[in-house]
Simulated scan of single mutants.
Amino acid sequence: MMTINFSPFQNLETEHLLLRRVIKSDLKEVKALRSNPETMKYIPRPLVTNDDEGLAHITMIDEKIEANEGINWAITIKGDSRLIGIIGHYRIKPEHYRAEIGYMVLPEYHGKGLATEAVKLVVKYGFEVMKLHSIEAVIDPDNLASARVLEKNGFVKEAHLKENEFFNGQFLDSVIYSLLNK
């Protein structure tokens, strides 16, 4: 079985992006991401409505890293330390060498290729550092932009699950994408 150790925390970078640890001073941007009905439209989780909930989200990210149960990075543009999104591996199944990737970016950065670039980097980390065999992404079937990001990174649609999640009084479908380490 693979062993996971996120210590010391590793920043990742591309030509345009620096992925770093999410910190308490990112609260304003984390709140902007998680409280916006538009960015949360395809994420069946409650909206963050105040500073305490935003800080609790940051604390949860930290605790998962410290426990080697998941890892998230703040997506930043090189030369600007401001968080523009969050990306990471969670629901890690070491016994199956598999993890789920998740990401979100502030609306003003949509359509610029930044999520695609960040996913490529985090996939590389998953395969090369974590030694994963496969990475999955679970998205809302209506989230066409996210499907494009995944497809550009080589992910393949594996399943469309009907009404497999219950949120806000309704049953929602999920689409599962996956990428194997070849």
Rank of each mutant, 00 (worst) to 15 (best):
V122N: 01
T3A: 13
E38T: 10
A115H: 01
E38P: 00
D26R: 10
E117R: 11
E95H: 14
K120F: 08
E63Q: 15
I77S: 05
H160Y: 09
N36K: 07
K64H: 15
L18A: 12
A67I: 04
E151G: 02
E163M: 10
F166V: 12
D51I: 06
E15I: 04
A67G: 03
K162E: 11
D140T: 05
K78P: 09
F6K: 08
D140I: 06
L33Q: 03
R21F: 05
R21Y: 04
L12R: 06
L47S: 07
T76A: 06
T49H: 04
Y97I: 00
L55Y: 08
G88F: 03
T14Q: 02
W73H: 04
M60I: 04
E165P: 00
E63D: 14
K152V: 07
G113E: 09
V105T: 11
E95Q: 14
L161K: 12
G70C: 09
K64S: 14
T59Q: 15
F127D: 09
S35M: 03
K78D: 09
E136N: 13
I4H: 01
E128M: 10
L47F: 09
I139Y: 03
A56P: 08
I71E: 02
D142K: 11
E158A: 00
T49S: 06
R148H: 13
E108I: 00
R20V: 04
N68Q: 02
V129D: 14
L144K: 15
E15G: 08
F166L: 15
Y90H: 15
H110W: 15
E163H: 13
R34T: 10
K157L: 15
S134V: 05
N68A: 01
V156T: 09
V48D: 01
T76G: 02
L144D: 12
Y103G: 00
G88Y: 03
A159K: 10
H89N: 04
E158F: 00
K31G: 11
K41T: 12
R91A: 14
A32N: 10
Y125N: 04
Y103T: 00
K24Q: 15
K78I: 10
N168A: 12
R91D: 14
L18M: 14
E66K: 13
L55D: 00
F171M: 11
V30Q: 01
A115D: 00
A74P: 06
E15N: 12
Y109Q: 05
G88A: 04
E151I: 07
I101V: 15
S134G: 04
F167E: 09
V123M: 05
N168M: 06
I139A: 03
